[in-house]
Nucleic acid binder design. Structure first.
Length: 508
RNA sequence: GCGCCCGUAGCUCAGUGGUAGAGCACUCGGCUUUUAACCGAUUGGUCGUGCGUUCGACUCGCACCGGGCGCACCA
């Protein structure tokens, strides 16, 4: 990226700036002015459309090649291509494409002349009769047209498209308009969220919004973004989870609540991480983690079916089947299956350390036995979990908000869902014992005081809420972005976010 | 934060020490029922930025800016 002499910052693709002139833009400005001088408003107010392109393609699917009709229609959209010196124009709207046939037989001399002032990328409305060409292309024989929005920037090559990754994310609107699959992915994202809402709403869940700005950011192990409230002169944090507030709602008498909300975590950016992302969390009173696994499995199966039309899908070359019953496996048993090592027989830290060493797993960050078990699991087992698999019963040290296991010492009733080697969801029998919760959060606070930036702060109001009494509760968090990645076979989280975070270009 | 790689025309890309190239797009002309339309001619670049090395740098070195992938952190 370089800075131009006039101080305008330019990227791999031109920024639209009044100062950023180049000859391609100048040429379009020339046409814009010519339009204005001929009395045409290049940016009019409305257009009366009779049909979407897709609807016409469907309606006239059986019209034979070489057939003319008297059916008059009006369409509008963006000019994406032109052939035969504007005799044929590809007009694209949200539903698809329709070809315009601009011939001297049906257009006035002025209209024919003004075609030369159009460019690819302009918005156009056209009225004419439906016909299908001998070559089989459904077309509109244009009797009149109106420019609906002049484009000043050249579109990327219609054949090669826009592939430069940086340009695609920096100017996502160009990416969307030139690469149809980008729009398709975002459409499927919307369908996914709609399907989830519908599924939960139909089952008595209530969607409630909880604060984004918080005095303490808790509910997950993550570094928050810090911001500031001027009037209160108060340091505030952007939320890293919705968990602690949704559980307050359970205390407050709501029995089934959820939130689909933006979460902010001040961490690195990668193909699987965006600083802001969308998480679904939901909580249901009187259920445990077993019931939650049943519910989650049925819900995601239904969502996959309604978004993609099938319960089995392709991701990164793997066929992933949401239809078959999902495996449920104790974490320690999963490790045993893959490595042959048995942590049930390594109850002391030193024994666990020994196993990790033998497996060449880096445990330099792990202090407790539980953390070591978790490291071994993540390194050795996680990448092997391609088909949907619930890993259950986590070491207590790694899960400060989870109820202790009803029968297994040192474990908690927690599960995580893995698909395509990645974590997709995290749920548990919620910890509801205020004294146990206090001890666990105090332990977290000690870690935080000792310099662990991801440890949870001590949220005294949350503890107070729990002291008022909390029913048994099952809860879960599902990463919506990663779910959409799976459903759309997207390699990067940025592909499923309309405007992913990009570093701004330096001002000179 | 660390490692490897990348940045050349509006787009997609060649060019590895000796005058900056191609296809498409744009402009002009021709042609006119096309499907990446076709034919012809032109135009378009401080080769990401800066500083070095060199007789000479797109090419080599260093720094910086931006990006990709992997690791780390995590969802």
């Amino acid at each position: 990226m370089h800075t131009k002499a006039d101080g305008v910052v330019s990227g791999g693709y031109p920024l639209s700036s009044e100062q950023d002139s180049n000859r391609l833009r100048d040429e379009r400005l020339r046409k814009l002015n010519a339009l204005r001088q001929s009395g045409t408003n290049p940016y009019p107010y409305k257009f009366g459309r009779s049909h979407l392109a897709g609807a016409l393609q469907e309606k006239y699917a059986d019209l034979a090649p070489g057939t003319e009709t008297e059916d008059v229609v009006s369409v509008c959209g963006r000019i994406m291509n032109e052939r035969n010196t504007w005799m044929f124009v590809d007009l694209v709207d949200e539903s698809g494409k329709i070809q315009l046939f601009c011939h001297k037989e049906s257009l006035s001399e002025d209209d024919l002349k003004q075609l030369k002032l159009l460019d690819k990328g302009d918005f156009l409305g056209a009225t004419g009769t439906i016909r299908r060409t001998k070559a089989g292309e459904l077309s509109i024989k244009v009797k009149g047209y109106e420019i609906l929005g002049k484009s000043l920037q050249p579109l990327p090559d219609s054949w090669q498209g826009l592939t430069d990754v940086e340009a695609r994310y920096r100017h996502r609107y160009v990416d969307m308009l030139i690469n149809p699959h980008v729009r398709d992915t975002l459409r499927k994202r919307a369908l996914t969220i709609r399907a989830i809402r519908q599924y939960l709403d139909e089952r008595g869940y209530l969607e409630i919004e909880t604060p984004v700005l918080q005095v303490e950011a808790g509910g997950a192990d993550a570094r928050p973004f810090v911001t500031h409230h001027n009037a209160l002169d108060l340091e505030l944090f952007m939320r890293i989870a919705t968990e602690l507030h949704l559980k307050r709602l359970i205390v407050g008498g709501f029995e089934r609540v959820y939130e689909i909300g933006r979460i902010f975590r001040n961490e690195g950016i990668s193909t699987r991480h965006n600083p802001e992302f969308t998480m679904l969390e939901f909580y249901c009173a009187y259920g445990d983690y077993n019931e939650m696994m049943d519910f989650t499995e049925a819900m995601l199966r239904s969502v996959a079916q309604s978004v993609t039309g099938s319960a089995s899908l392709n991701y990164a070359g793997n066929v992933i089947d949401f239809g078959k019953p999902w495996r449920r496996l104790r974490m320690i048993d999963a490790i045993k299956d893959v490595t042959g090592r048995d942590f049930d027989k390594a109850t002391e830290v030193e024994a666990a350390r020994q196993i990790a060493k033998e497996l060449k797993v880096d445990i330099s960050q792990a202090e407790t036995r539980g953390a070591m078990v978790n490291e071994v699991f993540e390194t050795c087992v996680e990448p092997t979990l391609i088909q949907p698999t619930f890993i259950i019963d986590y070491p207590v040290e790694t899960s400060p908000l989870t109820k202790v296991h009803r029968s297994r010492e040192g474990e908690v009733e927690r599960f995580e869902l893995f698909v395509a080697g990645r974590e997709l969801a995290n749920g548990y029998s919620e910890l509801t014992d205020p004294e146990d919760q206090r001890q666990r959060l105090e332990e977290q606070a000690r870690k935080k005081a000792a310099g662990n930036l991801e440890a949870m702060p001590l949220d005294l109001d949350f503890l107070l809420a729990m002291e008022y009494g909390m029913p048994p509760t099952m809860g879960i968090g599902i990463g919506i972005d990663r779910l959409v990645m799976l459903l759309t076979d997207s390699a990067s989280i940025r592909d499923v976010i309309a405007f992913p975070t990009v570093k701004p270009l330096a001002k000179s």
